[in-house]
Every structure is written in structure tokens, then in C-alpha cells.
Write a protein that binds this DNA or RNA. Structure first.
Length: 787
DNA sequence: ACAAACGTTATTTTT
DNA sequence: TAACGTTTGT
């Protein structure tokens, strides 16, 4: 086998794929098919190892694309993996299951919706949808919202699900918990009634499906020969259990699991992530192969020294020390400021200096522990005309106007979605007040039907406007039959009155733009997913098509979900970018959490004060403090060349001036890696020396004035679709002809309208008359030509 | 139905 | 401080 050590060495010499890998990376890439744990330090080329391994497995014929599953946490990571693979492999990567945990669960549930007891077009609730759904349950139960805060109840429910617990499984010791469980049970019923699932439900439902259906489970166990999990330290209990369904420990299938992670970068314990899964994995799978990637290709020595020294203070570690060949580089600069305002001022000067020295602004990151800290910095940047970009704001699909539009679209697919119903029933205003809705909700509750279904029941009392609303939805549904996604959305924006509303609204201009952007997003989505039935005669490049988790045929019939359902799913699963004009050269502002996975030439870690970083809420318990330290470790390791640490004596917090002392983390960094720009151990009131040296100042040439103009209005831009990704349209496929009759085992006779794509991607649009017009994947659907 | 006024509350958040 | 949600007043 090529996976033997000798084979691997031979490969390394011959294969361009394996060239330039260091010994540890090579070992990870070419590891035999047995459980393996890769401890990948920051900047150690983790993604490269993951993608190269997949490419190597495929190239050496150890697995076919369909046998590969690669799981990540973020859409971004999944996309990056797909893109990289597309450049490494000579063929298309469609058959591989590459995606986020939730994306793959969605894909799985779409294929097995019947077994999962879900409607075919089930919709996904995002965080805010979930909260409002929970709120409705609490209201309906007439419980005190003070005692049962919807958001917290939502967390409780998610927490239960992530522990694999249904309402019946939760052990409640006190009255409060008993009530919470009751809410949980009602919430579950409500979701089921409405045909919606939240994020945690996606995971739990697919886990249970696998657990309870041996045939399905075995099918997938046989299918996935290699399962690669990224950021394993961030998995929760349920995600680990889910993985075990595909690759049970101790079984032959258990050999397929390869976990990549870094316990030192575990910063999501507060959200249910269990670093312990790494140790459990090692034990349960009797992992013999633990590979440490400790060679760092990102940062200079001083930066790594600081990171290593700091993290060595943590007690519970698997143990890892980063090293580099890059040399020590510049010392880490430390700045003390009298106030947060002065700190921001100092930042401005530093940033201007760096930029004049030739550094792109987008290579400069300002990090902070909590979002509130960005304010002072933002205003300082704004006043100096330095373009900047703040991460972590509202994302595209979370914007109110976009959510409204999506709610109308959802109602077309599923009028029983009460969450969407309530969102737009009176928006734009239609004279439907709280009283009317209360009546409606009572009627719905009495009969156990949806709000939509209950409208006729209260038509008498103030229901005329309600009836007008449901008629609007119904007529729009009829009107949009057979339309393209773009046309559907444009129609909905029009008939819903959203366009008219924002056109007359005083600050509706931006919202109109966003609605326009929604249409663009849908268009781009249709192209990428290969739903483009208008795209006639465009050539298709088989090598360029990345697989998409959204488009998956029904396991039984081969039916592909409609473009609208697919787009709605996409909108819930991928909130979109929140970045202002991604192309512009702007300074990057973000929390340390959102900086994970990124890297910059110059990094400023600000607000390094006791109570802030480490945060006061975390200081009391040792685990919390260790997580804060890991957070600091993540922050430090973001920097490639220049790292600056900064803290303030005073800071405005909650409207009050607070006095802080410098973070304890300063005492945990190696003295000789630091360069203090301000005198040390300076007490309050001793006067603050504003003179600091610029260690980076080597008389660098001035590059003119800094470009002005702050990046204020975020725009969401979908990347252009390369022509190579447009679908190929053909007239004939395996005896099937466009315009001729076809027979499907489930849907009966129909007329073939369109043929697209080739090979595994081939799909057909068929009008089945009574059953409607459907898109079918020819690799799954049993279609035979008839005369 | 809407706006103004008030009270409450303030980590981090991949999906 | 400032952002949000609820109540109150027009």
C-alpha cells in the first residue's frame, strides 16, 4: 500500500503534492487509515495539511471523492478547503462532503426528510428566529418573562440538545428547571408543527436519525472511508457523538476518523465546546498516532516566545511548543496610556506611521476583548480619516429588511411558519393590531393549527385585514409559479409592499439597496448551485465546480429542492458577510474571538487590563482564567511581524470612569521579548510621559498623506461567477430528450423540460403535471424515456 | 399606530 | 454611555 512509510517516502520524492512539506506535515498527510490526532499549532500549515491529505488520498486511489467527508465549523473554512482542493485536483470535487457540521446535517436531513419526520421544505431558524420562537412559547404559557428570559431559555434548550437530551431526558431537580423543560417540550411541539428546526436541532435530529436507523447508519459508515475534522477542540458533546455514528470507535469504520485541533486555541468552552473531546478521542479510539505540528510559518521568534511562555502557564494541556526558522524579529512593544481615549490616539499615530512606512492598512489589526471597546477606537479612526472595517456587526441576512423579505418568501413555501407570519403580517402596516393577533393566536392554540390556518376562524371579528393578508400570500404564490428565483423575489418585494414602504421611508434608501442586493445574492446563488435554467449554451468546466452542501437530491426520489428552498436554507446557514467593502484597504477591528484563524503583519492587542482581559467574569474560576489565557494566546499568534500590547490606567465603562491595573498576562510574558515604550510601574497621577520611541522608525520614506474616507456603509458583495461554473445545458441524456415524455417511479409520467450538467451533476427539470415541476438529480432519480 | 419616555443592562458567539 | 425593550401618551 502507498500508505506504508516506505511508500510515503517514495511519494514524497516523486509527487509534487508532497514536496515542501516538513516531516511532521508529511506524516500527517500520508498517515495510514487509522484514528489519528493532529495537534496543529497556530500557523503550522493546518489547512494545507488537511487539503493535501485529501488530495493525496484521492490521487493514490485510496478513496474516491464520494468516500471523503471533511467537517469544519465555519463556512469560510469550508469554502477555503474547497477552493484549495479545486486547484490541487484535476477533477471536480462535487462528490465530497465538505462543509460545516450544520451544513452537512442540513444536507443529510434534506436527503432523508421523511425518516427525520420533517417536511420536505423545512426551514432553519437562526439565532434571532429561535429567540422569538421561544418567546412565543413563554407568552403562550403565560409565564413571567422576567423569570424566563427568552434568550436564556433558548440557551437552555440549545444546551440540552447539545447534550443529546430531549425534554424527557432532562433531569430536573428544582421547580425552575421543571418549568424550563416544560417550555422546551412546548417549543419542540411548536417547531414541529411549523416545520422549522433550529441550529442545534439540525445536529440532534441527524444524530438521532443515524442512531435509530441501522440501515442508513451502515450505508454512511460504508460510504465515508475518510472523515477529517477541523478545529476538533471546538466540538461539543453532540458533534462528537454525531461523528461517532459515522465512525464508531473500535469498529472497522472507526479507522476513518482523523481529528485536527489545537487545545491551546480552545476559546469556545462558554458555548459548549469540549476540549476534553480531544482526550476522549485519543482514549476511545486508542489513537496510536498523535502528530504535533509545531513548526510555525507565520510569526517571528519574539512573538512565538511570548506565546509559548504565556500558554505554558496553563495546567491542562496536551503540550506543544511553537518554533520558527524566521529569526527573532522585532521586540513586542508595550504601551501604557492614561486613558482609553489616549490609547486610541496612540493607535492612530502608530497606524499612520506603519502605513506611511509602506504597510497596507488591511495588514493592521486592532484586537480587543469585548465589542464595546471598539467605540473609542472607531471614533478616533473616523476623525483621522483612516479607513477601517469593524467585524462582528449585523450581517447581511440578519438585517431587518432582508429578514422581512425572507419571511414573505418562507410563507410562500410554508404558510404554517408562524415565526415568519408574525414577522410580516403587519409589516408594512395593514391595520392588523395586537388585539387581532391575540385573538388569532388564541384561535390557533385552541385548534392546534397554525396562525395562517386559523385566519378564517376569526374572520368575523376584525379578521378582514387578516384575510387580505393571507390572500396576498396565496395570490403571490400562484403568481410566482414557474418563475425563476430572481423573478419570485422581485415579485414578492413588489406585492408585499416592502418596496413601496421603503421608497417612502425617510431613511429607506439604504434598505432598498440591501433588498436589491438580496436579488443579486439570489442570482449569484442560483449560478453557483447550478440551478440556472436560463443559462443556455454556456460551456462548463468540470474541474472548477466546487461541491455545495445545499444542493442535494432526495435519497428516494432524486428530487432536488427548489431554488427558493435552497436559497432560504442558504440564508439561514450562512448569515453572509458583515464586512464593509471587502476590497478596500482598511484597518481591521475585531474581537479576539473573531480574529481566530486570521493573521496580520501588525497586530495591536488593546485594553490589556485586569477585569477586561482577563475579563472579570472569568477571573474567579481557574477554568475561566485558563480560557482567557488561551484567548490571549490566540491574539498573540495572529501577528506575523509586529505585535504591540497596550493598556490604560482609566477607561470609560458603563458610563463610568474605571481605574484599572495592567493585565496579569504581562507578568507571564518573557521580559526580553518586550520593549516598554512607556516607563514601567508608573502609579496614577504621576503624570504621563507622552513621549514614546518608535522602534520601527528607521527613517522610512513618506508615502504621502493617508487616504481619507471612512468605510461606513457596509455592502454585501457576492463574488462574480466564473463562466466555468455556469451549468451546461444539453438536449439529450441517456435516451432522455427535452420535450419528450419521461417516467419516474414516484411521480409518474411527465414532460422533460431541461437537461443540465454532466456526469454526477446531471440534472433534469420535469413537469409532472399534478405533482408539479421538479428538478431531479439523474444520478439518483430513476427516469425512463416514454413515447 | 406611532412616538416619546422610561427603565434596564451591559463578555466572548464559528452555526 | 448607549442600546435595547417595554410602557405610556398622543
Amino acid at each position: 500500500m502507498t500508505s506504508s512509510p516506505v511508500g510515503a517516502a517514495a511519494d514524497a520524492a516523486s509527487s509534487p503534492l508532497l514536496r515542501n512539506l516538513n516531516p511532521e506535515q508529511l506524516a500527517a498527510v500520508t498517515a495510514a487509515a487509522e484514528p489519528a490526532l493532529i495537534l496543529a499549532g497556530a500557523g503550522s500549515g493546518k489547512t494545507r495539511v488537511l487539503t493535501t491529505r485529501i488530495a493525496w488520498l484521492l490521487n493514490t486511489g485510496q478513496v474516491s471523492p464520494g468516500g471523503v467527508m471533511a467537517v469544519t465549523f465555519t463556512n469560510k473554512a469550508a469554502k477555503e478547503m474547497q477552493t484549495r482542493l479545486a486547484t490541487m485536483l484535476p477533477f471536480n470535487v462535487r462528490g465530497m462532503w465538505i462543509g460545516t457540521f450544520h451544513g452537512l446535517c442540513n444536507r443529510f436531513l434534506r436527503a432523508h426528510w421523511k425518516l427525520a419526520h420533517l417536511p420536505q421544505a423545512f426551514q432553519i431558524l437562526d439565532a434571532s428566529d429561535t429567540t422569538s420562537a421561544v418567546k412565543r412559547v413563554i407568552k403562550a404559557m403565560k409565564l413571567d418573562e422576567e423569570r424566563f428570559v427568552p434568550k436564556q431559555v433558548g440557551w437552555f434548550i440549545a444546551g440540552c440538545k447539545e447534550d443529546g437530551q430531549r425534554p424527557g431526558d432532562v433531569v430536573a431537580h428544582d421547580e425552575q428547571t421543571r418549568k424550563l423543560v416544560e417550555i422546551y417540550a412546548n417549543y419542540e411541539d411548536q417547531c414541529q408543527r411549523e416545520g422549522v428546526v433550529d441550529f442545534a436541532e439540525l445536529m440532534l435530529r441527524s444524530y438521532e436519525l443515524l442512531r435509530d436507523n441501522p440501515a442508513v447508519r451502515e450505508h454512511y459508515q460504508n460510504r465515508f472511508r475518510h472523515i477529517l475534522v477541523d478545529e476538533f477542540q471546538d466540538t461539543n458533546k453532540l458533534q462528537y457523538a454525531w461523528l461517532k455514528m459515522f465512525a464508531p470507535p473500535g469498529s472497522a469504520h472507526g479507522q476513518s476518523l482523523l481529528a485536527v485541533g489545537d487545545d491551546d486555541q480552545s476559546i469556545y468552552a462558554f458555548r459548549g465546546a469540549r476540549v476534553g473531546n480531544m482526550i476522549d478521542f485519543e482514549r476511545e479510539y486508542r489513537v496510536r498516532k498523535v502528530i504535533k505540528l509545531e513548526q510555525n510559518y507565520r510569526s517571528f521568534g519574539h512573538i512565538l516566545d511570548a506565546a509559548n511562555e504565556l500558554i505554558s502557564r496553563n495546567s491542562q494541556r496536551l503540550g506543544k511548543t511553537l518554533r520558527t526558522d524566521a529569526g527573532q524579529g522585532e521586540p513586542i512593544r508595550v504601551q501604557e496610556s492614561p486613558s482609553d481615549f489616549a490609547e486610541a490616539q496612540w493607535l492612530i499615530e502608530e497606524i499612520q506611521h506603519l502605513h506611511r512606512g509602506g504597510l497596507d492598512r488591511k495588514e493592521i489589526a486592532v484586537l480587543y476583548r469585548s465589542n464595546a471597546q471598539s467605540r473609542v477606537i472607531e471614533s478616533a479612526l473616523f476623525n483621522s480619516g483612516i479607513p477601517y472595517r469593524v467585524y462582528g456587526g449585523l450581517r447581511f441576512f440578519e438585517r431587518a429588511e432582508v429578514k422581512h423579505a425572507l419571511a414573505y418568501l418562507r410563507l410562500l413555501e410554508n404558510p404554517n411558519d408562524d415565526t415568519s407570519f408574525l414577522r410580516v403580517v403587519n409589516f408594512p402596516t395593514r391595520g392588523i393590531g395586537a388585539k387581532t393577533l391575540e385573538n388569532l393566536q388564541d384561535a390557533a392554540k385552541a385548534t392546534g393549527r397554525s396562525l395562517y390556518q386559523s385566519v378564517s376562524a376569526i374572520a368575523g371579528k376584525g379578521g378582514a385585514n387578516l384575510l387580505a393578508f393571507t390572500n396576498l400570500i396565496d395570490s403571490t404564490r400562484n403568481l410566482t409559479q414557474g418563475m425563476t428565483l430572481r423573478e419570485i423575489i422581485e415579485q414578492v418585494l413588489q406585492t408585499s409592499g416592502l418596496l413601496d414602504f421603503y421608497r417612502t421611508d425617510k431613511d429607506g434608501a439604504e434598505r432598498l439597496e440591501n433588498l436589491d442586493e438580496l436579488v443579486n445574492a439570489a442570482e449569484a446563488f442560483v449560478m453557483q448551485e447550478g440551478f440556472g435554467k436560463n443559462a443556455v449554451g454556456l460551456p462548463v468546466d468540470e474541474t472548477a465546480q466546487p461541491g455545495t452542501p445545499g444542493a442535494v437530491p432526495d435519497a428516494e426520489t432524486g428530487e432536488i429542492m427548489s431554488p427558493l428552498v435552497a436559497f432560504l436554507t442558504h440564508a439561514s446557514l450562512e448569515a453572509g458577510d458583515n464586512q464593509a467593502q471587502a476590497g478596500q484597504d482598511a484597518v481591521q477591528l475585531m474581537t479576539v474571538h473573531s480574529a481566530k484563524g486570521l493573521e496580520f503583519d501588525a497586530v495591536f492587542i488593546t485594553g490589556l487590563e485586569e477585569g477586561l482581559f482577563p475579563h472579570e467574569n472569568a477571573m474567579s474560576d481557574p477554568n475561566g482564567l485558563e480560557e482567557e489565557r488561551r484567548l490571549m494566546y490566540v491574539a498573540i499568534t495572529r501577528a506575523r511581524k509586529k505585535l504591540s500590547l497596550s493598556f490604560c490606567q482609566t477607561r470609560m465603562l458603563h458610563g463610568q470612569t474605571r481605574y484599572h491595573i495592567k493585565s496579569r498576562f504581562f507578568d507571564e510574558l518573557p521580559e526580553d521579548a518586550l520593549k516598554w515604550l512607556t516607563p514601567r510601574n508608573q502609579g496614577f497621577g504621576s503624570g504621563f510621559a507622552r513621549e514614546y520611541q518608535n522602534a520601527w522608525d528607521r527613517g522610512s520614506g513618506l508615502k504621502g498623506m493617508v487616504g481619507a474616507g471612512n468605510v461606513s456603509k457596509p455592502a454585501w458583495v457576492e463574488p462574480p461567477v466564473p463562466a466555468s461554473m455556469k451549468p451546461k445545458v444539453s438536449e439529450e441524456h441517456g435516451g432522455l430528450r427535452v420535450g419528450k415524455g419521461v417516467f419516474h417511479t414516484k411521480f409518474g409520467e411527465g414532460v422533460l423540460l431541461t437537461l443540465e450538467g454532466a456526469g454526477a451533476d446531471a440534472r433534469a427539470q420535469v413537469n409532472f403535471g399534478r405533482h408539479g415541476t421538479k428538478w431531479l438529480a439523474l444520478s439518483v432519480a430513476k427516469l425512463t424515456p416514454i413515447d
